[in-house]
């Protein structure tokens, strides 16, 4: 720690002082930076101090300095959400008043309803029906033209609101197929016969025509009540159509036989109460627009 004044040599070419340290014989000039550079640095420093005072800056054990301007990114987000909600309000009000046909007639409104419906579908329905609404084994495909309970706006709304076999809604849709094999209503042979007949309904040539013929009688005795004559389906009962190419639990003989012997039943929750009526309206409109709407 020397207190004597250090003397710097001056480089005769540039006029700058030469730093007294040398690195393998290479020196460094003490060329002063431009004035604006130095001043900018000072201004930035002062700006930073001002920033600490104005905005949230320093953390302490529990919490942080809030800043005198009271700025908060969380409040910002809340404000933006409120602004978005306010911007949606005129559309939402219109949606609430109009019926489905009127919404469909208004391109701007139907775009809005479909966008909302799509988001709601992704949050609430995609878990079972798939993000593309194409369903899965046991979960109905909502894109096709086959509906268990019907695919017009009113029916769809009823289904969404009250669900299917929902345990907490009196008005829920109910249907129950007896376990024909498990409960001994039909013998194993009768089950096989009726399966052969059911498959023949959708145009598949039965492997055993005699079995299909026998199955026709079994069908008439046991199945027509819900599935209708020749398996055309009965929507009031939720009885699936059997004479088409769409099978909820699979369309090969084994899968159909399994369903006759010991049927599985899907459950859909009742959404009234969980979603507000406007959300249900958007959902119904969206599902109706997927290609199968009636």
């Amino acid at each position: 720690m020397s207190s004597e004044k250090r003397k710097y040599e001056v480089d005769p070419v540039t006029g700058s002082a030469i730093h007294p340290y040398s690195w393998d014989g290479i020196g460094e000039l003490e060329t002063p930076p431009p004035r604006w550079w130095v001043l900018t640095y000072l201004v930035c420093f002062l700006f930073a101090v001002g920033w600490w005072v104005a905005y949230p800056a320093w953390p302490y054990i529990a919490g942080y300095t809030k800043g005198v301007l009271g700025f908060s990114t969380r409040a910002d987000v809340a404000e933006q959400i409120a602004a978005a909600k306010a911007a949606q309000a005129p559309y939402n009000n219109k949606l609430a008043q109009l019926d489905y046909a009127a919404i469909a007639a208004d391109p701007e409104l139907s775009t809005f309803a479909m966008a909302g419906g799509k988001a709601l579908f992704g949050e609430n329905c995609a878990q079972c029906h798939g993000s593309g609404a194409n369903g899965n084994v046991g979960y109905p495909n909502l894109l096709d033209d086959d509906w268990l309970w019907g695919g017009d706006y009113t029916t769809l709304e009823q289904t969404v609101m009250h669900g299917v076999r929902s345990t907490n809604d009196e008005a829920t849709r109910q249907s129950q197929m007896p376990a024909f094999g498990k409960d001994g209503i039909l013998t194993r042979e009768q089950v096989d016969d009726v399966v052969a007949y059911v498959l023949s309904l959708s145009g598949t040539a039965p492997a055993d025509p005699a079995a299909a013929e026998r199955g026709a009688q079994v069908f008439a005795d046991n199945c027509v009540a819900c599935h209708g004559d020749a398996g055309v389906g009965l929507r009031e009962m939720g009885g699936p159509k059997l004479n088409d190419a769409i099978w909820l639990y699979g369309g090969d003989p084994k899968a159909v036989a399994a369903q006759v012997f010991n049927p599985r039943h899907g459950v859909m929750p009742a959404w009234a109460g969980r979603l507000d009526p406007l959300a249900i309206k958007k959902l119904v409109f969206y599902v109706h627009s997927l290609g199968g709407g009636e």
Binding site: K5, K7, Y8, P12, S22, P32, P34, R35, W37, V38
Partner: peptide, 25 residues
Amino acid sequence: MSMTMNNRTPTTIDEADIPVWSHKP
């Protein structure tokens, strides 16, 4: 400890006199 390679007589400057910023005309 001089690193100047030329033969001109080096002048010196006090550390305190080195300018903080340059004075371009």
